[in-house]
Nucleic acid binder design. Structure first.
Lengths: 221, 221
DNA sequence: ATAATCTAACTAACTGGTTAATTAACGAGA
DNA sequence: TCTCGTTAATTAACCAGTTAGTTAGATTAT
């Protein structure tokens, strides 16, 4: 049953899984806050309450640790969203549920969204993780979403939008609100991240997307 | 008449304005590519073909130089967009022109959009430039855009959207496409930044926004 | 005893920033 | 117009603090 030896990870073999996990979580936090270039390995070690050399015991180098942080964040996001896509729902409901769920996920996972956003920026200037991330996490979601939209168009429920543009547009509406929140707070004086504003935004996004996606009465094609 | 002494900035007083400008432009490039944390002052000096000490002659420190880079990029953007807002156009045309112009500007100014995006991320974790940037550049644009939208609603041309959400949504649709381009290229296999795709996206964004903004026949309110 | 886990102390390279000296444009006086 | 001191512009060399990564040894479960 391997009873947990209380606390004190001191000494050795005091639960390696836990040490590795602590490092990974600390890394996620630091990388999300400061980026790969800005994050400090010393700070990660300190936050994980572990000697810095242990980072290099579990991970080859900073870049590899960053890659592991990305995998954690992206697979968490993918798993969460795939659940929605697996549901048996009509296209319109599925898209709306997807957007709502994605919105809620980002609202609740600041670290995740920061990390993802940071990596998207880095991808533009050559990230060694781009290929892996895109293929493993984004592509599956993107393909499935594309199918849903095509189904909606075929059934006449949707306008004949191009998924290649519509999908990024949906994501943009959700993601960008959080990205721009600090600036918007200064500009407007209101806190865009307060529960009320977030709820409002959720509704606005769904409204915006619905207006752009669903066919209106008397519309051609 | 001060005839330009050909080249050779060597020696001294070989046109200070030019040195300063060279440093600033180099800084903009480097900061856009690598962020504040990732950019190297040595690299900036090298790119500007200037001794590193000269950076500190014209700018207090790295952070100040970064601030100057931000001011350059943001004011360039603001000036460009204000021209549109100053035109005498009906609300619908003005919004569409604004979005199209913004889109074209970002398509043509990769460095600018990278710098802006990076600063938005940084704002979330306390940037010393946030206040200034928000007040000087974003707020004026935001207020003017809000007025245009209110006018469109009042005239019955627009649905009664909330500018506080609609404006960020518009910006999101334009900005995010470029942010996600590298990832989308890997996911889809197509290059989202090819002239044809960019033109397509421009049309898609205008379509998306129009569909969400303009009132449709037989709509309540 | 052995091998996995973990740490204190160290290092080599890098990085932002400084210093002291050098160069040349400018202007005042001879 | 020539000369020379003053001052802005510019640089080579340097420095102290930081940073990713290493090493050699300690700890402990089995």
């Amino acid at each position: 049953m391997k009873a947990a030896p209380a606390k004190s990870r001191l000494g050795s073999r005091g639960r390696p899984e836990e040490s590795r996990a602590a490092i990974l979580q600390a890394a996620i936090q630091e990388f999300a806050r400061d980026g790969v270039a800005g994050a400090r390995t010393d700070a990660i070690a300190r936050a994980a309450k572990v000697n810095k050399a242990l980072l290099y015991y579990y991970f080859k180098d900073k870049e590899t640790l960053y890659g592991a942080a990305l995998d954690y964040a992206f697979s968490q996001l993918k798993d969460h969203m795939m659940q929605i896509l697996d549901r048996d729902l009509p296209p319109g409901e599925k898209v709306r549920t997807y957007v709502a769920t994605y919105f809620d996920f980002l609202a609740d996972h600041k670290v995740n969204r920061d990390l993802v956003q940071r990596e998207m920026m880095r991808a533009g200037h050559g990230s060694p993780h781009l290929q892996r991330i895109a293929k493993n996490y984004f592509q599956p979601l993107f393909l499935r979403l594309g199918q849903v939209i095509h189904a909606g168009i075929a059934s006449g429920e949707f306008r004949s939008v191009d998924p290649l543009h519509f999908v990024p547009s949906m994501i943009a509406l959700v993601v960008f609100y959080f990205t721009s929140a600090p600036v918007m707070k200064t500009v407007t004086g209101f806190d865009p991240l307060s529960p009320e504003r977030v709820a409002e935004r959720r509704a606005a996004v769904l409204d915006f997307i619905s207006a752009a996606l669903f066919r209106h009465e008397g519309e051609r094609r």
